[in-house]
Amino acid sequence: ELSQDQQALINYIVDAHNKHRIPQEMAKKLLQEQFNAKENFLLLTEMATTHVQVLVEFTKNIPGFSTLDHEDQIALLKGSAVEAMFLRSAQVFSKKQPNGHTEVLEDRIRRSGMSEEFITPMFNFYRSIGELQMMQEEHALLTAITILSPDRPYVKDQQAVERLQEPLLEVLRKICKIQHPHDPQHFARLLGRLTELRTLNHHHAEMLESWRMS
């Protein structure tokens, strides 16, 4: 069972995660307008920038984050921004969209100039997240847990980060047991996705460079 404090923590993080997302007007642009390759690139770049801004706003709401050393806060956000972006996109792709929307989005990404060797693992990741049928609590908590990874480069006080991450892991573990009683491995599967995310993050920098060149 969840304690009252744990339930309050979940509600708080889910609220923050729902509140801080890419504005709908911007998301709509992805579906409505036709762009050439250059405009496509600029739109996706603009969305990535906005994503980072809303990610920071969400992160400010994670209990205890503001007590961390300021430079450690930046190191955590820098280290996790790409992973959090993939998680958010995965959440979008695993939701049931109105007819045709998923195809339009996928097509736009495929025509954005990114190389196939990167696109394939990205959509594989989206699919693997989709298969887990995660609830919004799991998405919000997993994002917070990703951000509070103590082993990011340049983090000085790793223990302080661990102290914030641990209660979130415990809450997520409990939620997995409650919401997926027939899949005792669900929590382990979620953590496995974090490993997959690290691999995507690792390839992201070189992908971005080749994208910029093309």
Partner: peptide
């Protein structure tokens, strides 16, 4: 434009609450 800023700049500005810049 914001898209010309580096990741760290965007994070620093957003942390300081200057999202509109």
């Amino acid at each position: 434009p914001a898209s010309n800023l580096g990741l760290e700049d965007i994070i620093r500005k957003a942390l300081m609450g200057n999202m509109e810049e």
